[in-house]
Amino acid sequence: MSLIRVGTRGSALALAQTTAIANRIATAAGAEVEIVPITTHGDTSREPLSSLGGTGVFASALRESLLAGDCDVVVHSLKDLPTAAYPGLRIGATPKRADARDVLVARGVLTFDTLPQGARVGTGSPRRVAQLLARRPDLDIVDIRGNVDTRLGRVAEGDLDAVILAAAGLSRLALLESVDGEYLELSEWPTAPGQGALAIEVREGKIDRALASALATLNHATTQATTTAERLVLARLEAGCAAPIGTMAAIDDGLLFLTATVYSPDGTRSVVSSHAATPESHSLVHLTEAAEDVSDRVARDLLAGGAAGFAPIEVTS
């Protein structure tokens, strides 16, 4: 394959992360690459994300272009990718995950704890809304959309006192050094399933040998296993963007640990479950089996704890 066309959303963040992946594909495959920007409904609409049908609005146009043959692969932020299988497509690689934490970016020297009573904090994520209200019910949460620069600009201009952003996005845009943000640790502030990770999607069936080899080089088994565990909780609860769910999975000392928390939308209630599984080896097959096992137990615990009673989720068999 002399030319590999890589589809992406057209935002600055999407282009930055896709360009980095495209360069790695080019090197590994020994081929030229072309970036193919694709406009999605989620990029053009200013409606709240939850009312648009969830994060899938960012993925659908990319997937349609891939199926139509307009590109050979597409790069997604994994947290934006629905958990249900998409006919004709599969995830070809999950590169090594970046920082999964959220960052509070506030005006002046304010921190989460020193934000004034009634401070205006911007986010478009129901999960972040619930977490903010759980810790600081006095805050005025403002629903926002727009790219990272737009969100940071509203803090700089004084329209908002703070915004919550993903550390991975700030890093990929080389903005971490220029913003004085407060990292919110995963142990107290779990983030969206798959946050910080990317997914490279391809058409099902046989693909070019050079591209297949490149994807195998880019795939990171630990990231694939931990994000699979997180996303399987989401899938087993049939929960999407409208359900405030935070997850954290990690492999440590030979164990795959998974913690998931489901919040009520107003942050007044939550249920949490943590489990661990022991993979038979660090092969991808055994890591995936462990991810399936631990996510099943966590999802069952969440339901037994009453999560379905206060979060917009459905129970699947």
Score class of each variant (00 low, 15 high):
residue 312 P to M: 13
residue 218 L to D: 03
residue 313 I to D: 02
residue 210 A to W: 03
residue 13 L to Q: 11
residue 199 A to P: 07
residue 17 Q to H: 15
residue 111 T to Q: 06
residue 148 V to D: 05
residue 161 D to K: 04
residue 2 S to L: 13
residue 172 R to Q: 14
residue 150 T to H: 03
residue 230 E to N: 04
residue 55 T to G: 10
residue 4 I to E: 13
residue 38 I to C: 05
residue 264 S to G: 12
residue 92 G to Y: 09
residue 21 I to E: 03
residue 232 L to C: 05
residue 217 T to S: 14
residue 144 I to R: 01
residue 104 L to T: 02
residue 166 A to S: 13
residue 148 V to E: 07
residue 6 V to K: 09
residue 230 E to L: 06
residue 11 S to K: 10
residue 106 A to H: 01
residue 189 W to S: 07
residue 122 G to E: 05
residue 52 L to E: 03
residue 219 N to R: 11
residue 135 R to Q: 08
residue 29 A to T: 02
residue 106 A to K: 00
residue 204 E to V: 08
residue 177 E to M: 01
residue 222 T to E: 14
residue 252 D to T: 06
residue 232 L to V: 05
residue 303 L to A: 12
residue 100 A to S: 13
residue 247 T to N: 02
residue 277 A to E: 03
residue 91 I to C: 12
residue 220 H to D: 15
residue 35 I to E: 02
residue 224 Q to H: 15
residue 23 N to S: 06
residue 13 L to M: 07
residue 227 T to G: 01
residue 75 V to S: 12
residue 118 G to P: 12
residue 46 R to C: 04
residue 159 D to L: 07
residue 215 L to A: 05
residue 72 D to I: 12
residue 39 T to L: 09
residue 309 G to I: 03
residue 135 R to N: 07
residue 198 L to Y: 08
residue 101 R to S: 13
residue 199 A to H: 10
residue 169 G to I: 05
residue 3 L to K: 15
residue 118 G to N: 11
residue 119 A to N: 09
residue 294 V to T: 04
residue 36 V to M: 12
residue 287 L to D: 04
residue 119 A to L: 10
residue 138 D to V: 03
residue 251 I to A: 00
residue 262 V to N: 03
residue 100 A to E: 09
residue 133 L to N: 03
residue 123 T to G: 10
residue 202 V to Y: 13
residue 264 S to M: 06
residue 121 V to F: 06
residue 243 A to T: 15
residue 120 R to H: 08
residue 267 G to C: 06
residue 252 D to V: 07
residue 8 T to Y: 09
residue 164 I to D: 00
residue 293 D to E: 14
residue 28 A to T: 06
residue 39 T to G: 01
residue 265 P to L: 12
residue 59 A to S: 15
residue 44 T to D: 07
residue 79 K to I: 15
residue 86 Y to N: 14
residue 64 E to R: 15
residue 302 L to W: 10
residue 89 L to R: 14
residue 219 N to V: 02
residue 238 E to K: 07
residue 116 P to Q: 12
residue 152 L to E: 01
residue 211 L to K: 06
residue 41 H to I: 14
residue 191 T to D: 12
residue 145 R to T: 11
residue 292 E to Y: 05
residue 268 T to V: 04
residue 106 A to C: 01
residue 239 A to D: 10
residue 150 T to D: 08
residue 30 G to V: 07
residue 75 V to E: 12
residue 74 V to N: 07
residue 266 D to L: 10
residue 85 A to D: 15
residue 40 T to F: 07
residue 193 P to L: 11
residue 229 A to D: 08
residue 37 P to E: 09
residue 195 Q to G: 07
residue 313 I to T: 05
residue 256 L to D: 02
residue 315 V to M: 05
residue 261 T to D: 00
residue 156 A to I: 06
residue 302 L to Y: 08
residue 260 A to V: 02
residue 84 A to K: 14
residue 170 L to H: 04
residue 88 G to N: 12
residue 282 H to T: 05
residue 277 A to N: 01
residue 209 R to S: 14
residue 140 D to C: 00
residue 316 T to H: 11
residue 103 V to L: 10
residue 53 G to R: 03
residue 287 L to I: 02
residue 211 L to W: 06
residue 27 T to S: 11
residue 188 E to F: 08
residue 204 E to W: 05
residue 161 D to I: 03
residue 68 A to F: 06
residue 160 L to H: 01
residue 299 A to D: 01
